[in-house]
Design a protein around this nucleic acid. Structure first.
Length: 524
DNA sequence: ATAGGGTTAG
C-alpha cells in the first residue's frame, strides 16, 4: 500500500484534491510515522497550499525530519516568506536537526533579503566549520548576503577566496557595488569578468545599468543600453525599467518612444512596473496625453500605478485632472496609501490650491493614513500662501504628536512654514540678511546650502521657542557645538524683530542677544 | 524522501 500511495503522490497529474485524499488515508491509517511518506505528501502540498496552511501542517507533524523541514523551507523561500524561513530554520536547529549544504543557501538568502547580518554571520560560521567552504553556490549566497548588508569588504574577501567564480557570483558583485553607487568599481569588475573568460549575461548587464541609473549617470545608462544591444542581448523588463528613468531625466522623447515600441514588440507590457516606468518617462518628457494612454493600459488595481500617474499629472501642471482621478479612485474605495495622499496634497500645494491641500491633509488623517516625512514639507507652499499661523501650528502639532519631528526635512519645512506664517522670514530678509552659505561645509549647490542653513538646530530651537512661549518671554538655547555665523546673525535680527532676549550657550561662550546686538560683540 | 546562488520596482 505504501508503494501505491507513494506513486500517487509522485504522479505528475496530482492535484490538491488528490493530495487531500491521500492525506485522509494517512489520518485514517495512522501513516504519519512513516517520515518518507509524509515528506512526499508535504512536498506535494507545498505546491498547492497557501503559506498559513503549510505552517499548520508542519507544526502538526509528530516527527519532522530534515527532509520535511527542507521541503517546507524551500517552499517558504519560493513564496518569499523570509521571516518564516528563518523561523523554521531555527526551529529545526532546536530539534537537533542539522542542515545540509542545499538548505543553507535558502537561509542565507533570507538573511540577505531581511538584511539580517548577525544570523547571516552565524550561518557563515556554521558553513565553515562543516567544511562547506568550497561549495561555490553556498559561497555565492554568502557573498550576496554580505553585499545586501552593506559589508562590501567581507563580500570582497570571500569572493577573492573563491576558486570557481561563475557568472552568478560575478553578477552579484557587480550589482552589489552598483547599488552602493560605486559604479566605477562595478564596471571594473565587469571587465575583469570578461578577461577571466566568464561571459556576462543579461543579469550582469542589468545590475550594472541599474547602478548607473541610481547614481544619476544617465548618459552612461543609455550608452550601456546601446552596448548590450549591439552585443546581441535582448533587454527584458528589468533593463527597460532601469533605462526609462534615465531617458525621462534627459527628456529624450524620441528614444523613449523607441523603447516603448520595443516594449510592445517584446510583449513586456504585461509587467506592471514596465508600464509604470513608461508612464513616468512620458510624464518627465511633458507628454501628458501619452502618459494617460499608458495609464489606461495599466492594471489599475495596483496602487503604485495610480501614484505614478498622479505624480505625472502634477508634474505637468494638470492639477484638476489629478484631483478628478484621485476622487474617482477614492470613490471606488481603493485603498489609498501615504504616497497617494502625499502626491495629491503636494500637487494642490504646488499649484496654488492651498485650501484643498490643507483639507486633504485633514482627510488623510481622518481616513487613518499617517502622514510621513515627505507629506509635511509638501505643505510648505500652501501654508506660505495662506499666511495663517493656525495652519502652521496645526501641522507643527501633528509632527510633534507623531514623533517625525526629528527628521531634518520636516523640521526645516516647519521652520519655513512658521517663518512664512509669522512673516518672520520676509522681515529677516528685509533687514539686509544674506544667508552665509560659507558656514555650510558640505559640497552642495548654493540653493541647497541655504536650505541646510535653514535647518540648523539653533535656528530651529529659537523659532520653536517663539511659537511655544508668550511674546516677550526670554528664550534659552543650549548647544553642544559652536553656533555658526549665519545662525548668530539671524538670531540677532530675531531678537530685535520679536523684542526678545535670547540666550544661547555654545561650546565657546554665552551669547546674550538683545535688540539686535549680541553680548559677544560679534567676537563670535 | 528534500533540492541551492545573481538583476528590476515604488
Amino acid at each position: 500500500m505504501f508503494q501505491s500511495i507513494s506513486q500517487c503522490l509522485n504522479s505528475t497529474t496530482s492535484t490538491l484534491f488528490h493530495a487531500r485524499q491521500v492525506h485522509a488515508h494517512f489520518l485514517k491509517f495512522g501513516l504519519f510515522s512513516n517520515t518518507q511518506l509524509t515528506t512526499t505528501l508535504l512536498t506535494l502540498y507545498s505546491h498547492y497550499l497557501p503559506f498559513p496552511q503549510l505552517k499548520i501542517i508542519l507544526s502538526s507533524l509528530p516527527q519532522p525530519t530534515i527532509f520535511s523541514f527542507s521541503s517546507i523551507i524551500h517552499s517558504f523561500a519560493r513564496s518569499q516568506h523570509f521571516h518564516h524561513v528563518l523561523g523554521a530554520f531555527s526551529q529545526m536547529g532546536s530539534r537537533g536537526l542539522v542542515p545540509d549544504s542545499y538548505l543553507l543557501p535558502s537561509a542565507i538568502k533570507a538573511c540577505a533579503v531581511l538584511k539580517a547580518l548577525k544570523p547571516g554571520r552565524q550561518v557563515h560560521a556554521f558553513a565553515s566549520v562543516n567544511g562547506f567552504g568550497s561549495d561555490s553556490v553556498l559561497m555565492s549566497s554568502l557573498v550576496h548576503m554580505y553585499l545586501k548588508c552593506n559589508r562590501i569588504e567581507d563580500a570582497q574577501k570571500l569572493f577573492d577566496g573563491m576558486c570557481e567564480r561563475d557568472v552568478i557570483v560575478w553578477s552579484a558583485m557587480i550589482a552589489g557595488y552598483s547599488r552602493l553607487g560605486i559604479v566605477d568599481r562595478a564596471k571594473e569588475l565587469f571587465n575583469e569578468m570578461r578577461n577571466e573568460g566568464v561571459e556576462p549575461n543579461l543579469v550582469s548587464w542589468n545590475g550594472m545599468i541599474a547602478g548607473f541609473c541610481n547614481a544619476g549617470s544617465y548618459d552612461e545608462v543609455v550608452m550601456l543600453f546601446r552596448e548590450m544591444i549591439s552585443d546581441g542581448f535582448f533587454p527584458d523588463g528589468s533593463t527597460v525599467s532601469c533605462v526609462l528613468p534615465g531617458i525621462g531625466n534627459m527628456e529624450d522623447v524620441l528614444m523613449g518612444e523607441q523603447v516603448h515600441g520595443y516594449v510592445i514588440k517584446q510583449g513586456l507590457e504585461s509587467h506592471n512596473f514596465v508600464l509604470s516606468a513608461l508612464l513616468d518617462m512620458y510624464g518627465r518628457c511633458g507628454c501628458a496625453s501619452e502618459m494617460s494612454r499608458v495609464f489606461d493600459e495599466i492594471d489599475q488595481t495596483e496602487i503604485g500605478s495610480l501614484n505614478a500617474y498622479l505624480t505625472g499629472l502634477s508634474r505637468n501642471g494638470l492639477v484638476d485632472t489629478a484631483l478628478e482621478v484621485f476622487k474617482k479612485f477614492k470613490a471606488r474605495e481603493m485603498e489609498l496609501n501615504v504616497v497617494t495622499w502625499t502626491s495629491i496634497i503636494s500637487s494642490c500645494s504646488q499649484n496654488g490650491k492651498d485650501m484643498e491641500a490643507l483639507q486633504l491633509f485633514r482627510d488623510m488623517q481622518a481616513d487613518g493614513v499617517e502622514p510621513n516625512a515627505i507629506t509635511i514639507p509638501s505643505l510648505i507652499p500652501a501654508c506660505g500662501n495662506i499666511s495663517r499661523l493656525t495652519h502652521g501650528k496645526e501641522i507643527h502639532c501633528f509632527s510633534l504628536r507623531n514623533g517625525i519631528f526629528d527628521d531634518v526635512y520636516v523640521s526645516s519645512a516647519l521652520i519655513e512654514i512658521l517663518e512664512k506664517s509669522e512673516k518672520l522670514s520676509i522681515e529677516i530678509k528685509k533687514s539686509g540678511y544674506l544667508p552665509m552659505t560659507k558656514s555650510v561645509l558640505q559640497d552642495v549647490e548654493e540653493q541647497d546650502k541655504e536650505q541646510i542653513l535653514c535647518g540648523h538646530s539653533e535656528k530651529l530651537a529659537v523659532v520653536l521657542g517663539l511659537i511655544n512661549t508668550s511674546p516677550g518671554q526670554p528664550l534659552q538655547v543650549i548647544k553642544n557645538l559652536r553656533i555658526c555665523v549665519d545662525c548668530h546673525a539671524v538670531i540677532k535680527i530675531i531678537s530685535r524683530l520679536e523684542g526678545r532676549e535670547i540666550f544661547v550657550r555654545d561650546t565657546n561662550r554665552f551669547h546674550h542677544f538683545k535688540d539686535g546686538v549680541c553680548s559677544c560683540g560679534d567676537f563670535w
